[in-house]
Computed example of a mutant assay.
Amino acid sequence: MKSTPSILGLLAILTILIVQSSCQSKEEIFRQQYVVEGMMQYEKHCENCHQKDGSGLKDLYPPLAKTDLWKRLNASQIACIIKNGQKDAILVNKKAFQNYMPGNSKLEALDVAELVTYLRDKWGNDPRIFSLDSARIALKNCP
């Protein structure tokens, strides 16, 4: 009889998890997956220069948080910068940043889609997913 409370507790936890997950649409779960994967991509490829909080690094690397970038650049432009880098100066909050940003040819379209989704969600106040198809099209048409 000692196992009955344990089984009932396990069933209660499983029921709660099922109810919680059923409250979210498939699309929202998918979007959240992109955000989490994008966060891992950011930590691996971007955080060193742009910092964990997106504040950038003094005059060397531009901030991503609290900037006008999200109003000036669309998701396709952001995808191209991530993949191909930024050679020219970029203006962020009326301040020019001259440092070269290398691209990352190892990133696949899915990596870029997840990263753009994360960046827009985190600092762009834009919770929309940047789909794999959109990323493929954007990367194919980069200047």
Rank of each mutant, 00 (worst) to 15 (best):
I7L: 15
S3F: 12
N74M: 02
I18N: 10
V112M: 04
V19E: 12
N99R: 12
V112K: 09
L11F: 12
K122I: 00
K26P: 09
I82T: 04
L115E: 14
T4N: 11
V92T: 06
I18W: 06
E28C: 03
C49W: 00
N48E: 12
I78D: 01
Y118P: 03
Q33K: 11
H45Y: 01
I16S: 07
L73E: 02
Q20H: 09
M1W: 13
E27H: 10
L119T: 12
G54P: 03
Q32G: 09
D111Y: 14
P143L: 05
G54D: 06
E43S: 00
S6L: 13
R31A: 12
Q98I: 09
L139T: 05
L60S: 13
L64F: 14
W123Y: 15
E114A: 11
Y118F: 15
K52G: 02
L110I: 13
C49I: 01
R128A: 11
T117V: 10
A138V: 07
E28H: 08
S25P: 09
F97S: 05
M40F: 05
L60D: 14
G56D: 02
C49V: 00
K106M: 09
K94M: 07
D53N: 06
T15V: 10
K87N: 08
Y42L: 00
K26I: 13
D59F: 08
H45I: 00
V35D: 05
S55Y: 03
H50C: 01
N93C: 07
K87L: 03
K94R: 10
H45P: 00
G85T: 07
Q51I: 03
V112P: 09
Q20F: 14
N99Y: 10
K71F: 04
L17V: 11
P102F: 13
E37T: 06
R31E: 02
P127R: 11
D121L: 03
